[in-house]
């Protein structure tokens, strides 16, 4: 996949170009592209003068970094114990059917990524669904459409 790498130089310019900036730069790349494109990792290694192997090591260490393209809208369904008991799997099924993908993947048009998470610490609101870091509590199966359309 070809990317508009122009945005990279803006990211690099935000930080001193040395190895201390590695994680900050990777975070900004993740924010911009929703994942870490290969070319971006290569450019990062070059710009910060850090071996590519080290960049890859750090980038794969943290779960906050993704290595596959992710959707514009990231929907995370909590399937922790409480949410599970309160029907999270039904919500999951509904969302999977509507998007025609399984949890853990991204729609072809890169609009949605569906993921599951384990307990987000909001059990009193169970079942919980998080859309781009916005939390929705007491979710019902019939809310699926609303969730997909939410900003």
């Amino acid at each position: 996949m070809k990317h508009n790498l122009d945005k990279l130089s803006a990211i690099f310019n935000r930080y001193p170009q040395n190895r201390e900036s590695l994680i900050a730069v990777l975070q900004d790349i993740q924010k911009e592209y929703h994942y870490l494109p290969e070319e971006a990792l290569q450019a990062t290694a070059k710009t910060l003068d850090v071996p590519l192997s080290k960049v890859f090591s750090v980038a794969t260490f943290y779960n906050a970094f993704s290595h596959y393209p992710r959707g514009e809208k990231i929907i995370r369904i909590c399937v922790g114990t409480t949410c599970h008991i309160r029907g999270a799997h039904l919500v999951q099924e509904q969302l999977e059917n509507r998007l025609n993908i399984k949890a853990g993947s991204t729609t072809k048009d890169l609009k949605y990524t569906l993921e599951t998470v384990n307990c987000v610490g909001a059990c009193s609101q169970a079942p919980v669904v998080i859309v781009n870091n916005k939390y929705y509590g007491h979710v019902k199966v019939s809310d699926a459409k609303k969730l997909l359309r939410s900003k």
């Binding site: 071996p51 890859f56 794969t60 260490f61």
Partner: peptide, 19 residues
């Protein structure tokens, strides 16, 4: 050379070349 490194962590950790 810095040609290889550990990749990932926990159960999935391995030694591998970049990318």
């Amino acid at each position: 050379f810095h040609a290889i490194s550990t990749v990932g962590r926990g159960h999935g950790k391995e030694v591998a070349p970049p990318l």
